[in-house]
């Protein structure tokens, strides 16, 4: 009984802070989602709208398009980072000259703020001034222009995200791989298992918990990408790279449509939870089939 009370006592400060910075704002957003509230409308203040904001969302092509392209971006980014991160983690398991230096340099992007990442990549890729378009044109005659071609912008945003976040995947998987016991692998080799079989029947099932955690963290991050894209292209060219986080930011802040923005935020949160849950079930099922 005493230990339960001590436990709650120790948790209390965290729970209080969470209530203020997490639960209360969430309830507030939930509340204003039922109102029309645009700072510069003729009718000022909160005007009760019922579920109208949610009804609008279902028919809002801009929002739905932003959501769809966010899922597309997240899929590309997370899968690429996972494959690359796993390969790099495997590489870092081996002993080679310069391993420590490589590991340090490789982890550096993680400490850079997203807004700075966007600014740096903008300087690197801006047409007319940036070295990348200059050399692509000079060496290959390739007209690379992120402000004109949506596909160039998408590829650049994807590359930027991979550069920024692959080290995170590498480090978490490296931690998981390093912690695996050696005996099952040695036994498998003695039994004549090849590398692919070792990977499929041993490595993958054994690192599944850490893999799942990494995938979820990266998916949630990728679904709410804003800063880097805003700095790099502003969501352009056109609206081709306006992802849902950026779309919500533009609705809530520059446009000051608070009620509608709140409804969008909640629907996106709901969508993220459902997506993560479905993914969890799918990965867990795949894991069970592999071990069976």
């Amino acid at each position: 009984m005493k230990s339960t009370r001590t436990g709650w006592g120790l948790l209390a400060p965290t729970l209080i802070i969470l209530a203020f910075v997490g639960v209360l704002p969430f309830l507030y957003v939930f509340y204003i989602g039922f109102f029309d509230w645009t700072m510069f409308a003729a009718k000022t203040g909160l005007v009760f709208a019922g579920v109208n904001n949610y009804r609008r969302l279902v028919f809002d092509n801009d929002f739905l398009a932003a959501l769809a392209r966010t899922v597309q971006f997240a899929a590309w980014a997370v899968v690429s980072e996972l494959i690359l991160g796993f390969l790099l983690a495997q590489l870092l398991l081996r002993n080679f000259r310069g391993r420590s230096i490589f590991r340090t340099i490789h982890a550096l992007p993680l400490v850079v703020a997203p807004i700075a990442v966007g600014a740096t990549w903008r300087l690197f890729t801006i047409p007319g001034f940036g070295p990348l378009p200059y050399y692509l044109d000079k060496w290959f005659g390739f007209d690379y222009n992120i402000s004109r071609y949506p596909s160039h912008a998408f590829a650049t945003i994807l590359l930027m995200d991979i550069w920024h976040w692959t080290p995170f995947v590498t480090l978490t998987l490296l931690a998981g791989l390093t912690a695996l016991p050696r005996e099952p692998f040695e036994q498998a080799l003695v039994d004549g298992a090849n590398r692919l079989q070792v990977f499929r029947y041993l490595t993958l099932p054994m690192i599944q918990p850490i893999l799942l955690t990494t995938v979820f963290i990266r998916i949630m991050d990728a679904l709410r990408i804003v800063d880097e894209v805003w700095m790099l292209t502003g969501g352009g060219p056109g609206t081709s790279n306006r992802y849902v986080g950026l779309h919500i930011w533009l609705i809530v802040f520059p446009k000051t449509d608070y009620g509608y923005g709140a409804a969008m935020s909640l629907l996106t949160l709901y969508f993220t939870i459902v997506l993560s849950w479905l993914l969890f079930i799918a990965i867990a099922q795949a894991g069970r089939q592999t071990t069976a």
Binding site: T38, M39, F40, A41, A42, D62, R148, P150, G236, P237, G238, T239, S240, L250, I251, P254, K255, T256, D257
Partner: peptide, 22 residues
């Protein structure tokens, strides 16, 4: 226009798409 910022945000994307040729 009191609605300067809100109408701007609604209208500007059409200009972006005209610039790209979309």
């Amino acid at each position: 226009f009191p609605f300067h910022a809100s109408v701007r945000e609604v209208v500007a994307p059409f200009f972006f798409r005209a610039i790209t040729g979309e």
